[in-house]
């Protein structure tokens, strides 16, 4: 069953991205085609199969928890706004 455009509107609201109505309509059509494409995946018999989370067996290798000297001058270059040792960012509490 085809999903309605509300599914696209809901996702846009969750991720907070501005997408104009023409592109929303395009995404709606593409989502329905994508879900049709997934039909055979839904039909795979996975009874009793455990979902996995990683495709490989590398175990986390942790470094020592020690402070290291950083170069503030280098960091500053990458920040749009940097003042008195702090990144200046737009206010997040209104």
């Amino acid at each position: 069953m085809a999903v309605e455009i509300k599914a696209i509107e809901n996702a846009i609201r969750v991720i907070k991205i501005e997408i104009d109505p023409v592109d929303q309509k395009r995404l709606h059509g593409e989502l329905n085609r994508f879900l049709d494409w997934l039909e055979s995946l839904e039909a795979v018999d996975t009874a009793g199969v455990e979902p996995i989370r990683f495709g490989h067996n590398v175990v986390n290798s942790l470094r020592d928890d020690q402070a290291a000297a950083g170069d503030l001058k280098e960091v500053r270059k990458a920040a749009p706004n940097f003042d008195d040792g702090f990144y200046m960012v737009p206010p997040i509490i209104e």
């Binding site: 696209i8 996702a11 846009i12 991720i15 907070k16 997408i19 995404l27």
Partner: peptide, 18 residues
Amino acid sequence: RRLTFGHEAQRRSVFGTY
């Protein structure tokens, strides 16, 4: 996010959220 993402990144964000 509009400024940052092109069509494909938009599609992946929206479809992934769905």
